[in-house]
């Protein structure tokens, strides 16, 4: 088992400090669309300068470096236990170097562990795959936007919508309205349809690894994604909730099988600082890429 701790630290640094081009381009396009001199345009201009400064100085884009969510795809025979230890160590080192803020707080006692490790912290998903190399995805998801996520059970008294695409549309519109600017709009919505309460949310968050403006393999979902992007932006909530034309940059959805009795729609709100990278480790060489 090779020691990849240093490569993982580099992955954390890149994710925290270097926003992916698809997000940056979407923000730049949004900035052009907003009314000249408006608070909305001012907010986007500030955001774009901040993105460039972070990349140039190697400093976190946002001080809330969030929950580090790792997805690890590993070849047969690699030790999950050792990978977990290396990830924990990389997180400690990245915290020391100020790529990450100490963010792991004991739920009841309120004490910060100081190094971003704790009970089930960071989040790590493991999956063995058929290839002979290792792939590690990392999403840094801040608390402000995480608090804006929500889950609907359809139908319910407060969400009386049908168990079909029409109902999903209404749930997602409602989620975007409820979030207002609080999740650091313009955000990206990941949506999980079906599953149980837990798998539905995990699926929603997985969507945030997709490239903005890509094509959903399911044509019905692809059409709904594009319709929702347009309709949510009609709400006029705007960057930071200042009012304006850009409330979200993208909507990305996927479905899972569900129980006959359940129909969950889970919405994960990701702030404009959609920090995600993927690292592959092949033949001892690490390559960090954007989705």
């Amino acid at each position: 088992m090779p020691d990849i701790t240093e490569q993982l630290v580099e992955l954390i640094k890149a994710t925290s400090t270097d926003l992916a081009p698809d997000i940056e381009q979407a923000l730049a396009a949004a900035c052009k669309r907003e009314e000249a001199g408006s608070a909305a345009q001012g907010a986007l201009e500030t955001i774009l300068v901040n993105v460039r400064m972070s990349r140039e100085t190697g400093r976190p884009i946002c001080q809330d470096t969030g929950t580090p969510i790792f997805h690890v795809w590993y070849p047969q025979g690699l030790s999950q236990r050792q990978l977990r230890e290396q990830i924990m160590q990389a997180v400690r080192i990245a915290t020391e170097r100020a790529y990450l803020r100490p963010n792991a707080v004991a739920a009841l006692a309120g004490k910060n562990s100081g190094d971003n490790t704790g009970l089930d912290f960071p989040t790590i998903h493991f999956e063995e795959w058929e290839h002979d190399y290792l792939k590690v995805g990392l999403l840094l998801k801040g608390g402000g936007c995480e608090n804006c996520g929500c889950q609907y059970s359809l139908p319910a008294p407060e969400s009386p919508w049908s168990r079909d695409l029409k109902g999903v549309r209404k749930a997602v519109l409602n989620a975007a309205f409820k979030a207002q600017g609080l999740g650091c709009a313009p955000g990206i919505l990941g949506v999980g349809i079906g599953g149980d309460r837990a798998t539905s949310v995990i699926k929603a968050k997985e969507q945030l690894f997709r490239r903005l403006g890509d094509t959903n393999p399911d044509p019905q979902l692809d059409a709904l994604e594009k319709q929702l992007l347009r309709e949510i932006n009609e709400l006029g909530i705007g960057p930071m909730g200042f009012g304006g034309k850009t409330t979200v940059l993208g909507v990305q959805m996927a479905e899972l099988h569900r129980l006959p009795a359940s129909f969950f729609v889970s919405v994960a709100y990701m702030c404009w600082a959609d920090r995600r990278k993927i690292m592959t480790l092949k033949d001892g060489k690490a390559v960090i890429e954007n989705p």
């Binding site: 907010a43 500030t46 300068v49 901040n50 400064m53 972070s54 100085t57 976190p60 402000g144 702030c271």
Partner: peptide, 13 residues
């Protein structure tokens, strides 16, 4: 006063 959420490097400057 509303600051720009996420503009952490710029504000730190």
């Amino acid at each position: 006063l509303h600051a720009i959420g996420g503009a952490a490097t710029l504000i730190a400057e």
